[in-house]
Simulated assay, not measured.
Amino acid sequence: MTASEQCLLLGVDDAEALQDWMEQARAGDSVSLPEDTLEGIGCVLSIYASLVILLSHDRSKDWVRTPDREPLFQGKCAMSLMASGNRKDLEDVARYLLNERYR
């Protein structure tokens, strides 16, 4: 993902702040994140877990960027929906994949 996409998915306005948080986490330091960012991380982890279960690693990378005919995506790729800046869109993708897992 690009830094811009990462910020959109996590609800972070400042790419530099996101980079600082990641560096602190890698160093093993405590990081205090806003609730909205934690919710975004939860959605991303759910999406990742679903893709690992449903698809191979290579196919999952492709799936995120491939246009999809499912009504949710309206011919767009999942990444364009997830990175729309609207948390509901990210949650909808996570929910869609959870439903696919349990079909």
Rank of each mutant, 00 (worst) to 15 (best):
V31M: 08
L38C: 15
L90F: 12
Q6C: 08
S46R: 14
L55R: 15
L81K: 13
D36T: 07
E70A: 06
M1L: 05
G42N: 04
L98E: 08
D29A: 01
D68P: 06
R103C: 13
K88F: 14
S4D: 13
Q24W: 03
C77Q: 10
V12D: 01
R95P: 07
N86K: 14
G75A: 10
V31Y: 14
I41E: 11
D89G: 00
K88W: 15
Q6S: 07
A17W: 07
R101T: 07
G85I: 10
E70R: 14
A49I: 06
V64M: 13
E5Y: 10
G85D: 08
A27Q: 10
C7A: 05
V12F: 08
R65D: 05
L90Q: 03
G75Y: 09
R101Y: 07
W63T: 04
L55P: 15
H57W: 15
E35N: 10
A17V: 13
L18F: 04
D14R: 12
M1Q: 07
R59S: 02
L90A: 00
Q74E: 13
D68M: 13
A78T: 07
K76R: 15
G28S: 05
E91V: 11
R59I: 03
L81M: 12
A25G: 08
K76T: 09
C77H: 10
T37K: 01
D14T: 03
Q6F: 00
E91Y: 15
Y48N: 09
D62L: 14
T37G: 00
C43W: 03
W21G: 03
G40I: 05
Y48G: 01
G85T: 02
I47W: 07
L55E: 15
V12P: 03
M79A: 08
I41A: 04
E100T: 02
M79P: 02
K88I: 07
T2R: 02
S56P: 12
L10C: 02
V12A: 04
L33M: 11
A27H: 06
V12K: 00
L33S: 10
R87P: 10
F73H: 09
G11A: 00
A94K: 02
R101P: 03
I41G: 06
Q19A: 14
G42H: 02
K88R: 14
